[in-house]
Design a protein around this nucleic acid. Structure first.
Lengths: 150, 150
DNA sequence: TGACATATTCGACATATTTCGAATATAAAG
DNA sequence: CTTTATATTCGAAATATGTCGAATATGTCA
């Protein structure tokens, strides 16, 4: 995997992963980088990323930092060098924790509004729903972590 | 709520809701429309939406159709008229079902890839995780629906 | 069917975002 | 501290997306 560009199957995987993330607001380059990092057995340098995904190094830097912000990727160092290496985060619950934050915040907004504003049954019900969903997903995350410790 | 523009509290709610959705790739106008529809006791016409949210009618149309596509809003008709009325969907699990679709599809991609490509422990583990999360959220949705039938 | 009301699409323009290479900042070693 | 390697930021240009009003399509009634 040190040739320029990517083999067909890898390319397809990367584009498929990207196709899932882009509709959720992840920029194309960052989404493709995520697919790429998922494929890599070891962390990748920005030079390597830039070469294999055929983008400029600065675009690679921006994308990698964005993924890091989303907690989808993690940065590692290389002893004795300034080189940064990025890998897919093994805390890959990032998608779910983000989603929990979203529905929890939405529940709070809805709850607050239903208290302020009079009889809004729908809003109250939705607040309850999103609260419940947030709890359920948090529990599922907890179960997963607990099972990983066996 | 037939005056031009919106009162402070409503405006804040709308902007808060939008602020939650926009980072997930929902365009600003559609996100604001969702907040607006959540507030409305009855369905809103495009003329009404355009006036109160201070946008063009065509922008309102595009936003409403987008929300409909996301299943966050629902369209109703008006007897004897061509007028369309939009309301927040009472199938408001749209956010969750979209997320379930995302993690399920990601699990599939990961699973397929780990079968094809040799020992990729991480990918297999992630496929399992996302599969599990998808199941957990689906169950929570089912519980909610079952409880609604009491 | 035609008239009218209304939604949607289209194309132009405005605005936002992305991508790039150069400039700048930063980290590590000697 | 200087040098070198590397990442990051900057600003310009390219590209994508959003918004609008006019044009077009669609639905209802007489």
């Amino acid at each position: 995997m040190s040739n320029k560009g990517l083999a067909g199957r890898d390319h397809t995987f990367i584009e498929d992963v990207a196709g899932l993330l882009v509709p959720w607001g992840v920029p194309q380059t960052a989404a493709r980088l995520y697919g790429y990092l998922l494929l890599r057995p070891e962390p990748a340098s920005l030079d390597c990323i830039a070469a294999e995904l055929e983008m400029s190094k600065s675009s690679a830097s921006v994308a990698a930092r964005l993924l890091e912000q989303y907690t989808l990727a993690r940065r590692r160092g290389e002893a004795g060098s300034k080189r940064a290496l990025y890998e897919a985060s093994d805390n890959y619950e990032g998608i779910m924790t983000g989603q929990i934050r979203l529905v929890t915040a939405l529940a709070d907004l809805l709850r607050k509004r239903s208290e302020q504003g009079g009889p809004r049954e729908r809003i109250a019900e939705m607040a309850e729903f999103y609260g419940m969903i947030g709890d359920a997903t948090e529990q599922a995350l907890r179960r997963w972590k607990a099972r990983g410790e066996d």
